[in-house]
Simulated assay, not measured.
Amino acid sequence: MSRAAEPQPTRPPETDLARMLATLEVEARAGEYVFVTAVQPERLPRALALATIEEAEGLTCVLRREDADAHGLSYDFVAAWLSLSVHSALQAVGLTAAVSQVLAERGIACNVLAGFHHDHLLVPSERRDEALAALHSLRRANPAGGD
């Protein structure tokens, strides 16, 4: 009987801001995404939600725009979904501030979702390419990040 291969050790999550910025890669998911909410959560297609947040005012779900449209859900912000491929530690300091600042300097709204492995940014879909360029500028501004 053969044993399943054990997972290869991975690098620990990064905590050094300069290194995170120097190695920052940004991936854009295809499509458009929207925030929807309902006081009665059973009205939302939770199985289609890519992210959920439970608040006192109701459940918020991030859905693909076409899924929200198919379910007749209203929304007012249409976003592009950008993922930061640096594996930042949850206790790391400064990454969210750095990406928010570079986007704010260009007047680009940014809604941040933190996952265990990566941070995700929802920016106005019509400013997707401008946001990508702004985020890539962080890497050029922080070149010292070798292994």
Rank of each mutant, 00 (worst) to 15 (best):
M1G: 15
S2E: 11
A5D: 04
A5C: 00
P7M: 01
P7K: 01
T10R: 09
R11C: 04
R11Q: 02
P13Q: 00
E14T: 03
T15K: 08
D16Q: 05
D16F: 02
L17G: 08
A18Y: 03
A22M: 03
E25L: 02
E27R: 09
A28G: 04
R29S: 15
R29A: 13
Y33E: 01
Y33C: 01
Q40V: 15
Q40W: 12
Q40M: 05
R46D: 04
R46F: 05
A47E: 12
L48C: 05
A49T: 11
A51D: 11
T52R: 13
T52E: 14
I53T: 04
E55N: 01
A56E: 11
L59A: 10
C61N: 07
C61P: 11
L63Y: 12
A68D: 15
Y75L: 06
Y75S: 10
D76C: 11
F77I: 12
V78T: 07
A79M: 07
A80H: 11
A80I: 15
A80M: 12
W81L: 07
S83E: 03
S83F: 00
L84W: 01
L84Y: 04
S85W: 08
S85I: 05
A92W: 03
A92F: 04
G94A: 06
A97Q: 03
A98F: 01
S100I: 07
Q101V: 02
Q101P: 01
L103N: 08
L103T: 06
A104P: 03
R106C: 03
G107H: 12
N111D: 02
L113I: 14
D119V: 04
H120S: 04
L121E: 11
L121W: 06
L122Q: 03
L122K: 02
P124Q: 09
P124T: 07
E126P: 05
R127C: 10
E130L: 06
L132T: 08
A133Y: 03
A134K: 10
H136T: 01
H136M: 02
H136N: 08
L138M: 13
N142Y: 14
N142S: 09
N142C: 12
A144M: 10
A144S: 08
G145K: 02
